[in-house]
Every structure is written in C-alpha cells, then in structure tokens.
Amino acid sequence: MKTISIFLFSIFLSCSLWAQKAEIKEKNYPKVPSVELKDVKGNTINTAKINNDGKPIIISFWALWCKPCQKELSAISDVFDDWVKETGVKLYAVSIDDSRSSSKVKPTAEGKGWEFEILLDVNSDFKRAMNVNMIPHTFILNGKGEIVWQHTSFADGGELELIKVVKKILAGEDVSTEGK
C-alpha cells in the first residue's frame, strides 16, 4: 500500500512540474470544475457551466456560521447595484452550510436583502474541488470562465480590491500579480 502511495505521489509531482511549465508558457488559467449544486430555487446548476455573457464573475464561499463571510457579502451588497451598473459583474455566493442550516440560507440571504445568485454546497463537494480550505474564500473569473484571481479571508475594505480586479479584467489587463 505504502509503495503504491509513494508511486502515485511521484506521478502527481511530475505532473505538477509539467503543468506549471505549460502555465508559464501560455498562461492557461484553470477553469471551474464540474460539480452539480442546487440553487435556492431547487434548480440543479453545473458549476462548470456558470457564465455571465463574457463578463467577469465573482464566486464567494460563505456560511451562516462565518461572521467575516457575511461581513464581506454585506459590504458588497451595499455597493452591488453600482458594481453591476459599472461592470455587469455577477456574484455567486456559495453556501457551505450543511443540512443543519442549509434551509435557513435562503430566508437569511433574502432577509438581509442580498441580490446574489446563491448556491448550496451542502456536503462541500464544490469546496473540495476548488481547494477551498478556510472561508471566506473568493474567486474571480474572467469573461472566458477562467479563474484569474483568488483570495482568502476578509477585512473591511477588502471589497475594494475585488472591484478593482474586476475592472482590470474588463480593461484587458493582467491581474495575476494583483495584490502581490
């Protein structure tokens, strides 16, 4: 068993070297992996197929038990009308609440007046596929659906960074070094 594990591990390592080489050459950003989630209306959504007609998308992982996550989404909510008008950006707020509280996600989000697309990741399948470790964890996709920027944790004022990145993407600028 151990030998097999080591063997597999070495395959992974060599793969990663190749993969990295390729990225440097052509900047091929990762796409969103395919996971079936329910939205709060009960529709099934395949995460690989989310799109915004060629405009950027923000994906934010949150939960009802996560204070900073709700702070981030509330801060965005306060200015979201302006963001949409200026950039056409769309926001998917992916709740990782499990069955304890997933049925409270919709009433709470509506009660707070958030106007985001809300997805329910009740057993963290999408969270795992996106390598999210701690929340809040926020991703920004360019118009082609490629993940070009990501950030973990939130402090007040952090929302300004998000809209800055979105605007740079729209202007065709490179955002891979943003925030570094």
């Binding site: 049925s103 919709k106 009433p107 709470t108 989000a109 509506e110 009660g111 007046g113």
Partner: peptide, 12 residues
C-alpha cells in the same frame, strides 16, 4: 423545514 423568503424578510 419550512421557510418564507422575500426581500428584506425571511422566516424559517
């Protein structure tokens, strides 16, 4: 679970 949601009000 039963819930009611409208903008500005949520009951669960």
């Amino acid at each position: 679970n039963l819930s009611y949601s409208q903008k500005g009000l949520g009951i669960s």
